[in-house]
Amino acid sequence: MTSLLKDQPPRAAPAQPLPGAPPPPGRRPGWGDDEGGPRRDDSPMPGMATAQLGMLMFLAAEGMLFAGFIGAFLVFRFGNASWPPPMQPRLPVAVTGVNTAILLLSGYTMIRALRAAARRKPAQLRASIIATALLGILFLAVQGYEWVRLVSFGLTMASGIYGATFYTLIGTHGLHVVGAVTWLLIISLLLARSRFRPARRLPLELCGMYWFFVVGVWPLLYVLVYLH
């Protein structure tokens, strides 16, 4: 993802100001310029940087992907008289509850990381990022442990609709966490190598958006899938 951002269209235009068109302070690429023009009040999201906007759209699509899976899940959850179906292993509600707290906590550390970046505090930034990544890994580890146990109890993809919806939904989320953690690790690597630079903030902000999405979806899944 980060590499995609490098190739943003030439921001050359703001760099070489044209007569009568002073560039905006670097947030908008292209040559959008709000001065005097009718665009300022017209723009639906004034000030939203292009990369963030793109990320938001990506997350909307992700949201629909989850909506598809959740919709399928609900059909089975409410279409079956008894849920979970008899003779199926129970899901670990309590452990996952703790795990939910872990993930929510990682959301908080992410907020701290973003705040640190905004205030240019590299040490706090690095610590928060690493804490976030570690919490994410912990979440995954607990999930992995749970899965191993569930499989040993006989709950598999093929064991019936209960297992199939469970692994599909929770697995999709898990994959997203894996992706988000990887991204975080890359960022912490970059942070470790070079000192914090304002130019690095954009990838961080995007990663933060993605992280919040991954964290934000989880409680919904927890309530739907684990609590009944």
């Binding site: 959008g32 023009g37 009718p38 999201m45 906007l53 793109g54 759209m57 990506f58 699509a61």
Partner: peptide, 21 residues
């Protein structure tokens, strides 16, 4: 989807000066 994300972002954020909705 890659195309869509691009299109939406471009239309929202990259219109020339004076190109209102």
């Amino acid at each position: 989807l890659m195309g869509s994300i691009n299109y939406i972002t471009t239309v929202i954020n990259m219109r020339a000066r004076g190109m209102t909705w």
